[in-house]
Structure formats: structure tokens, C-alpha cells
Design a protein around this nucleic acid. Structure first.
Lengths: 147, 147
DNA sequence: TATTGTTATACTCTATAACTATA
DNA sequence: TATAGTTATAGAGTATAACAATA
């Protein structure tokens, strides 16, 4: 297979991927399943998986600026999904952790099938799920690497 | 494979897909390659592929509300990437088509490798591109079906 | 009356710049 | 001075509601 063909293919895939991301993004925002927007759910999930994080660490991991992390945490805190604890080593900072309510919401959103994506994906065949799994691993790596 | 396992798998994939879409979406917006945001490029591409469209048809196809389509068209028109023609059969409406400049921009963005996605994807192996192609077909179908 | 498109307005997500408190 | 976090402000993308023109 020629390099030209590879390039063409990857460029076409880039166009399709871009478009699909735009559309899925709109869909997910509209169907804010748990009552949390995709951004908030992503942040909550990260705090849940990676344990207590400082706002800066959240910003770094989510690839947003610190003021955005501040805002995400403030909203999650107002809903009692996360809580802050003073950082014993640095008086300027603090560590943010998921509350019980936050964990419950995460667990619920993980098992919910009535949400848009859960429902749509549960209709896929095992081999289709496997294909999606593989592609997702690829995209996750790609997002991680090129930062 | 049990239904429980399938459900768990699809639910986990839903969480990962959601997160990946959020992060890719941020990335694409930041790296607005052609000078067009993902939303605008998606709209321009659609108008290019599906030929002259009315604002309502654009809204329908892009899954946005009509005021949003109005705004997208206005921005593309201001940049001379699309142009409007009166609808001979309906005085309330008009048809929006891509201009020469619009086509040039689309062609350029299709072959550009320096843009974020194009560069990232061109580093993938053929089998990885194939996996991504398959998953994208799946997601495109999914977005199309569940509307 | 119903429909197409637009305008007015508001909300979310994000950014940059400026500020506060601590290191 | 430098850094962590926050506040102030602005811009993009989207929605709903109200309106104008035409069907």
C-alpha cells in the first residue's frame, strides 16, 4: 500500500472522526444523563479514579486551564459530589476527593442502560463492542501522547 | 458470554467513549486547524457534500436548532465560504451553497497533515487505521439511527 | 394558521488577565 | 519572586422564546 494511499486514508478518517466527535459531543450534552454534563462527569470520574487531586492536578489531567478546573470543582462541590481537604504540606492548596454521593452517582452512571450511550452501545454485537474497544484504546493513547 | 458481562462491557465502553469525546472535543477546538472551529468545519463540509441546503435542512442534518444553523451560515457567509440563492419555490427560504473559496478550504483541510488529527492519525499503522475506520462506521451509524 | 428564517436573550464551557495568599 | 488558586471578563456554541415574512 502506497504512502499516498495511507495519507489519504488517514486524512479521510480525520475528517470523519472530527465530524463524529462534534455530533457525539452535541448529543451527549443534550442528553446529560446523570444530570451532569459530559465535562462534569469526566472530571468527577477522574477524581474518583485518581483519588484526591489538587485543582492543578485536575487541570493537568483533564487538559484544561486552572480557572476551568476551579469552576468544575466548585460546581461538583455545590452538588456535594466532591469535598475539599486542606493540603497539610502546602497552605495554598487543597485536595479534592469524591464524596459518598459522588461515588454513588458514578456507580449508577456506570451501570445505567437508559442513558443515551449505554442504551445505544448495549445494542451492539460482541464483535462490534470489541472493535469499539480497540479503537477507543487507540484514541485514548493518541490523546495521551500528543499533549 | 453472559448478558451481564456484555452489559458491563458496553457500560464501561460508554464511560470511556464519553470521556474520549470530551477530551477530543477540547483538543479539536483548541487546534482549530483551518481557522474554522469543528462546528463550522462540520457544517461547511456537510453543505459541500450534500449540495445546496436550506437553513432548516442544515439544522436537521447537523442536529442543531434552526437559530444555530442561521448563525453557522452567517459566519461562513461572512468569510465567503458559502453563499445564498433565493429559493424559487418558497419565498421564505433560500439555498446555501459552498463557494470556490469554501471548496478550496475543504480540499486543503482534507489533505493537510499538519493539523492535529491528520498528523496523529498518519502515525498509525494500517491495521490501526482499519480498526478506527470500523469503529467510526459504527459510531456514525449509531448517531444516525438514534435521532 | 402553519412554517421558514431571524433576532433577542441566556446558559455552559472554556480561555486569558489580574489578583490573593502562601512558598 | 514564584506558584496555587481564585475572580473578573470575554468569546464560542448552543438553546428557547418571540417575531416577521410567506405559504
Amino acid at each position: 500500500m502506497s504512502t499516498l494511499t495511507d495519507t489519504t486514508t488517514s486524512a479521510e478518517l480525520a475528517v470523519r472522526l472530527r465530524r463524529t466527535v462534534v455530533r457525539l459531543s452535541r448529543r451527549l450534552r443534550r442528553q446529560a444523563a446523570s444530570g451532569l454534563s459530559p465535562s462534569l462527569e469526566s472530571a468527577l470520574g477522574l477524581i474518583g479514579r485518581r483519588g484526591p487531586l489538587t485543582p492543578s492536578e485536575l487541570a493537568e489531567a483533564e487538559e484544561v486551564r486552572r480557572p476551568t478546573a476551579t469552576r468544575l470543582i466548585a460546581i461538583l462541590e455545590r452538588r456535594n459530589l466532591v469535598e475539599r481537604a486542606a493540603d497539610p504540606y502546602d497552605g495554598r492548596s487543597h485536595r479534592v476527593a469524591v464524596t459518598h454521593a459522588g461515588r454513588a452517582l458514578l456507580a449508577e452512571s456506570r451501570t445505567r442502560r437508559d442513558a443515551y450511550l449505554g442504551r445505544a452501545l448495549s445494542a451492539l454485537r460482541p464483535d462490534e463492542l470489541a472493535a469499539l474497544d480497540r479503537a477507543l484504546a487507540l484514541l485514548e493513547r493518541l490523546v495521551e501522547e500528543s499533549r
